[in-house]
């Protein structure tokens, strides 16, 4: 049984007895996991490699559905509805729950087209509206000044840190409720990393954020809640300020003090 702190704020997501089995696997990778995600907060998922944190993250926007044979069990509640049902409208879900990947994934098109991509998918055609929302998204991602004179240029000309900000702009342009970050800075240099961390802290005003990181110090710096996972289970979820000073589970303490992982 995991030790979970009580969350007083409203919840963005609630995971209930969730189990996940990869195609062809003998045993589930995630076992009977229950966990709340607080709204307008940053929840970090930490744990050693293979603990299931990325698997869990990718379940929130049903990325696993892209590859046949994966099985979900249990519930993940978003806006009081279980999003794991086969009938769930995945396209609508992914507009509300966006994702940023480890390697920056700028599309092979111009910077402006990149940011507008999600909006165009939704059917927004009005050129003025697109232009304004592109500018707003790039400003919110703290990259507007750097790219405003080269919106028509191909996105591949940007540096790694800039491309990651571009991906963030692209994701927030569709105004999601939740943003999933999958080790967003592990491919970046320390300065770009610091910039992205600051940005993530700012974004939580508008979105609920879940960030998977193998860098514990990043989780400590940035998050409000931290969940420690081990071997497919949630061991402990606590307020970051408390968890890193007084973890309640021995496993958590061992991981944080570097005894393994």
């Amino acid at each position: 049984m995991a030790t979970i702190v009580e969350i007083t704020e409203e919840k963005a997501l609630q995971v209930k007895d969730f189990e996940f089995t990869y195609a062809g696997a003998d045993a589930p990778s995630i076992q009977k996991l229950t966990m709340p995600i607080a709204k307008n907060s940053i929840t970090a998922l930490i744990g050693p490699s293979g603990c299931g944190k990325t698997t869990l993250l990718r379940s929130f926007n049903r990325m696993h559905d892209l590859y046949p044979g994966n099985k979900y069990e249990g519930e993940i509640l978003f806006k009081d509805k279980n999003i794991l049902t086969p009938k769930e409208d995945l396209i609508n879900l992914r507009i509300q729950i966006g994702m940023i990947f480890q390697k920056p994934t700028a599309f092979p098109m111009s910077i402006a087209d990149n940011v507008a991509y999600g909006m165009k998918l939704q059917g927004i055609k009005n050129k003025t509206e697109l232009k304004d929302r592109v500018e707003k998204a790039l400003t919110d991602a703290a990259i507007w000044k750097e790219v405003k004179d080269r919106l028509r240029h191909d996105a591949s000309g940007l540096s790694g840190g800039q491309q990651q900000r571009l991906c963030i702009a692209r994701a927030i342009a569709v105004e999601p409720e939740v943003l999933l970050f999958d080790e967003p800075t592990s491919a970046l240099d320390p300065i770009s990393t610091a910039g992205i961390e600051e940005l993530v802290v700012e974004l939580k005003e508008r979105v609920s954020i879940i960030i998977v990181t193998h860098n514990m110090q990043q989780a400590a710096r940035v998050s409000d809640y931290t969940g420690f996972m081990y071997m497919g289970e949630l061991i402990e979820l606590g307020r970051t300020e408390e968890l890193f000073v007084t973890p309640k589970e021995r496993l958590t303490e061992e991981y944080i003090t570097g005894k393994f992982g």
């Binding site: 110090q217 400590a220 300020e241 000073v245």
Partner: peptide, 9 residues
């Protein structure tokens, strides 16, 4: 101060 040490090293 303890929290600052723990969280920010």
């Amino acid at each position: 101060i303890i929290k600052t040490f723990a969280l920010f090293g």
